[in-house]
């Protein structure tokens, strides 16, 4: 079958930057080839199998129609988190969503709310800066035991859900609170903090809860649930955020 694939393209060496749109608000190009243009939609006809993923389509366009089309991908199987993008209006991993789930008209744009570097590639530095700000590593200054630090299956279950995060940024860049206030640490960083705060072997909860009680921390969450829809790993992100908020309240109380 043939699908029409519209891609929001942008080349920093040829097009004029338009800032980071909070939503896919760019215009369809009327002046293709004109020297002054911003991010613009380009249409491709691609013949596909209904079981192809959007990533397959992008690879086909790059191979057969325009080698300059730029996007990130690595594992191709939903593990590395490289290819989150806005697909038919929702944040999805291109390697995990199939043509038969989308229909014959497919539009692809970069993740909203993040600065665009080129085509579907966004600048992830701010995102990873926030990730690092919550100390996403085991903190435990006790002397190293002889054997591994053990944990019961019940204790492991408490934070199982948040271990699934692959840092693709689909959640954070779908969040209206983040669009409105780019300083907000965002759902992904809170998920990563949750993974350690509720780990029985970790002793850094106080530091992390302090950071997340900040004005750009958990209180910015308005339980809009966009993040839960966006998460390709099916993490119940809003619940994780609420658990962290309760821990902050419990600590004060």
């Amino acid at each position: 079958m043939e699908v029409t694939l519209r891609i929001l393209r942008y080349d920093p060496e040829q097009d004029v930057a338009m800032g980071a749109p909070a939503a896919p608000a760019a215009r369809t190009t009327s002046a293709a080839g004109s020297p002054v243009r911003g991010p613009h939609w380009v249409e491709y006809k691609v013949s596909v199998d209904p079981m192809d993923r959007v990533l397959d389509l992008l690879i086909k366009v790059k191979a057969d129609q325009d080698g300059s089309l730029s996007f990130r991908r690595s594992c191709g199987h939903g593990i590395c988190g490289s290819d989150a993008m806005l697909i038919n209006g929702r944040n999805r991993l291109a390697c995990r969503i199939r043509v038969d789930q989308l229909g014959k008209k497919i539009s692809v744009a970069p993740l909203p709310g993040l600065p665009v570097v080129k085509d579907l590639i966004v600048d992830m530095n701010g995102f990873f800066g926030k990730y690092r700000s919550v100390k996403p590593y085991l903190i435990n200054d006790q002397p190293e035991p002889e054997r591994e630090r053990r944990q019961s299956p019940a204790d492991r279950t408490i934070y199982d859900d948040t271990t699934k995060c692959i840092l693709c940024a689909a959640c954070t860049s779908s969040c209206p609170s983040f669009w409105a206030r780019p300083e907000y640490v965002g759902p992904a960083a809170i998920v990563q903090a949750h993974r350690f705060i509720f780990d029985s072997r970790d002793e850094g909860s106080d530091e992390r809860l302090e950071i997340l009680a900040d004005e750009n921390g958990v209180w910015r969450c308005r339980t809009i649930f966009n993040c839960v829809d966006a998460c390709p790993r099916g993490i119940n992100i809003t619940r994780a955020i609420l658990e962290v908020s309760s821990a902050i309240v419990g600590r004060r109380g």
């Binding site: 920093p12 060496e13 790059k62 300059s68 570097v117 080129k118």
Partner: peptide, 12 residues
Amino acid sequence: SIADCGSVFNTE
């Protein structure tokens, strides 16, 4: 040969 002669994120 390639189509993209750019110097930014040239994945091609």
